[in-house]
């Protein structure tokens, strides 16, 4: 039988305003469980702005549950639309032009707080963030006294492992994988803007070889993630042995490179090189969203203006973290 759902706000009586990484999400649903799951981001109702996107979620108790949403979720996109199917019947649409996300889920998905907190909200912000001026950056972020360290590098460079090691030597973890960057215009009216790096309190993801550095992972079982990668999913405060922070102000940019020789070296790099790295590693955006592309470029340029270094390390993460901590003390 064909499942047909017409989603409009008349069938979604429950409302919540969420403040997520500098974006405003206007949520409507018919599920108290979804509202409860997202309550950690609740805020007073701000007026709609260019930071607002709408999220409409309809729960159909007749839909079959999806056994494993991580392996049964499928994403595709064309022009201004992105689609996600979860299992056989759960469907989401992300409309980047109208800043509107809508979907239909089963009761089981609605009841899974972990699905919303650790996975779907981060994914939604990853897809929609650029349209509301919140730029997803494939970097870790750590905070020390209100000053942020953005840790970038190619996949496999060891960002997450080093992030945990840094969190154990004086930094606080903001994010280990994706950081969301917004720009707040100075309210004093100077026209200047300030960068804010946000995390989402998502679990830390460590690859199986992290067992070499963190023996407490012995006995745990890595899980399959959306991208097909096998990794440990860890409570951030537990593995970092300290509190997580929601945001920081970028002060240092570190581009991490693994080196086969021992030692840890720091090489200053230009803003142009830093920007080139971010631009060349950013998701391609469709021509249908020219304003979004321009906003992202402006934000990446602002990030690249932070003092930046390439760090080549052949040391274990603990030693690399200590070297970076000492370096940041001096710079």
């Amino acid at each position: 039988m064909t499942k047909l759902h017409s989603i409009d706000r008349a069938v979604l009586p429950l409302r919540a305003d969420l403040s997520i990484a500098g974006a405003h999400c206007a949520l409507a649903t018919n599920s108290e469980q979804i509202v409860a799951a997202m309550s950690r981001w609740s805020c007073s109702s701000p007026p709609p702005s260019d930071r607002t996107f709408v999220l409409d979620v309809f729960v159909d108790p007749n839909l079959p549950a999806t056994a494993d949403f991580k392996t049964e979720t499928h994403f595709r996109g064309l022009h201004h639309l992105v689609f996600a199917t979860i299992g056989s019947h759960e469907v989401f649409s992300f409309d980047l032009a109208r800043r509107h996300v809508a979907g239909v889920v089963s009761s089981m998905t609605a009841a899974s707080a972990g699905f919303w907190i650790s996975h779907w909200l981060p994914i939604t912000l990853g897809v929609m963030g650029t349209t509301v001026g919140v730029i997803p950056l494939h970097s870790a972020c750590l905070d020390r006294g209100g000053r942020g360290l953005l840790l970038a590098g190619v996949s496999g460079a060891g960002k997450s492992t080093l992030s945990v090691a840094l969190a154990r030597c004086g930094f606080s973890l903001v994010s280990d994988d994706w950081t969301y960057i917004s720009r707040n215009v100075d309210t004093a009216g100077t026209g200047a803007s300030r960068l804010i790096a946000h995390g989402l309190s998502a679990p830390v993801k460590l690859l199986p070889d992290a067992v070499r550095h963190f023996p407490e992972l012995n006995g745990r079982t890595p899980k399959l993630w959306f991208n097909g990668e096998l990794a440990f999913e860890l409570n951030a405060e537990e593995i970092c042995r300290g509190p997580q922070r929601a945001e920081s102000h970028p002060r240092w940019l570190i581009f991490l490179e693994r080196d086969s020789t021992r030692g840890c070296s720091f090489h200053c790099i230009t803003a142009a090189d830093a920007r080139q790295f971010f631009e060349s590693s950013a998701e391609r955006l469709p021509d249908q969203l020219p304003g979004t592309t321009a906003t992202r470029s402006a934000t990446l340029e602002a990030i690249a203006s932070c003092p930046a270094w390439r760090v080549r390390s052949g040391e274990p993460p603990e030693a690399t973290a200590q070297a970076i901590a000492n370096f940041c003390e001096r710079n």
Partner: peptide, 13 residues
């Protein structure tokens, strides 16, 4: 699989 249709104002999936 079985068809699912979601209608969202100007968009149908």
């Amino acid at each position: 699989t079985e068809a699912s249709i979601v209608m969202l104002g100007n968009v149908i999936v």
